[in-house]
Simulated assay, not measured.
Amino acid sequence: MKIQSPPFLYGQQGLQQSQRNLEQANQEVAQMATQTFDRVQPKELDAQQGSIEESLMEARQATRNAQSNAQVIDGSNKAIGSLIDITV
């Protein structure tokens, strides 16, 4: 008997999306960090710093979303385990 749990599936999908978002944010930070700033005017440098900060915040948000989705998966596993214990 295969037991499918919608919360588990939603948590898994959310975890995968969080991973994609984290990879994208990290890539943006890495690209901005490796650019040469000697050709950049001060105003442009400030704009790039803001972008780096935004990307770092997006990375942090993706990490928190991943943690939340992992808790959903854990809760779903515990609920399924309880149901199996009851029916056995």
Rank of each mutant, 00 (worst) to 15 (best):
M1H: 13
M1Y: 08
I3N: 11
I3Y: 06
Q4E: 07
Q4M: 12
S5W: 00
P6V: 10
P6N: 05
P7Q: 05
L9G: 04
L9W: 05
Y10D: 03
Y10S: 05
G11K: 01
G11E: 00
G11P: 00
G11I: 00
G11H: 00
Q12P: 03
Q12C: 05
Q12F: 08
Q12Y: 05
Q13N: 13
Q13K: 03
G14D: 00
G14K: 01
L15Y: 09
L15H: 09
L15S: 07
Q17L: 13
Q17N: 13
Q19K: 07
Q19R: 08
Q19H: 06
N21W: 05
N21P: 09
L22H: 08
L22T: 14
L22M: 13
L22V: 13
E23W: 09
Q24C: 07
Q27H: 14
Q27N: 15
Q27R: 11
V29W: 07
A30P: 05
Q31F: 11
M32A: 12
A33Y: 11
A33K: 15
T34V: 10
Q35R: 11
Q35E: 15
T36F: 00
D38L: 05
V40T: 05
V40G: 01
V40D: 04
V40A: 08
V40W: 05
Q41V: 04
Q41R: 05
P42V: 11
P42Q: 06
K43V: 07
E44L: 03
L45F: 03
L45G: 06
D46R: 10
D46L: 12
A47Y: 03
A47E: 12
Q49G: 02
Q49R: 14
Q49K: 13
Q49W: 01
G50W: 03
S51Y: 00
S51D: 00
I52G: 02
I52T: 03
E53G: 02
E53C: 01
E54H: 10
E54I: 15
S55D: 03
S55G: 13
L56I: 04
L56C: 07
L56R: 13
L56Q: 14
M57D: 11
M57S: 15
M57G: 09
M57C: 05
A59C: 08
Q61I: 02
Q61Y: 05
Q61F: 03
A62Y: 01
A62P: 02
A62F: 01
A62I: 06
A62V: 06
T63R: 03
T63V: 10
R64G: 02
R64W: 04
R64H: 06
N65W: 06
A66I: 02
A66P: 13
Q67V: 00
Q67T: 00
S68H: 07
N69P: 01
N69C: 06
A70W: 00
A70V: 01
V72Q: 08
I73S: 03
I73K: 05
I73R: 06
D74L: 01
D74N: 07
G75I: 01
K78H: 03
K78R: 09
A79M: 10
A79N: 08
I80T: 12
I80Q: 14
I80H: 07
I80V: 15
G81F: 08
S82L: 12
S82R: 10
L83Y: 15
L83S: 12
L83E: 07
I84L: 14
D85M: 14
D85H: 10
I86G: 09
I86N: 12
I86F: 12
I86E: 10
V88W: 14
V88I: 13
V88F: 15
